[in-house]
């Protein structure tokens, strides 16, 4: 989990309430019980499975990867990509250490350009 950030449960509760979505309403949407969701929102239970986190991200309108990071997870498709080229991608990710979010976004755009050519 990214340190210094609001915890997963507190974040989704705040976003849910800001969007005026009821606890039971949201629990139904993601297919869990209100009691379970209530405990997740209090960070008493760990974040739910990846598919549920993705569903929550869609409902509250936030970036899926960002919410997965708050849940201390990495999307399965990202893990699969890394597993295909573990050495190269580990090296690439290490080089991004210390870069700002803007720098990384620029790098991603360049990579996309290379890919398109």
């Amino acid at each position: 989990m990214v340190s210094g950030r609001e915890k997963f449960g507190a974040f989704i509760r705040r976003e849910r309430e800001a969007k005026e979505i009821g606890l039971r309403e949201m629990a139904k949407m993601i297919g869990v019980s209100p009691t379970y969701l209530s405990k997740v929102e209090r960070d008493e239970f760990p974040p739910p499975a990846e598919d549920k986190v993705k569903a929550i991200a869609k409902i509250i309108g936030c970036d899926t990867d960002d919410l997965l990071a708050r849940a201390g997870r990495v999307s399965t498709d990202i893990s699969e990509i890394i597993k295909r080229h573990p050495v190269e991608l580990a090296a690439l990710l290490r080089t991004t250490k210390g870069l700002t979010a803007d720098d990384i976004a620029r790098l991603a755009r360049r990579a996309q350009k290379v890919k398109d050519e």
Binding site: R13, E17, E20, G22, L23, R24, E25, P34, T35, S38, K39, E41, R42
Partner: peptide
């Protein structure tokens, strides 16, 4: 009643 409590009275609901 849930809408009245959560969306009008602005009281969160929790289960414990």
């Amino acid at each position: 009643i849930e809408d009245i409590v959560e969306k009008y009275l602005k009281l969160g609901i929790e289960f414990d």
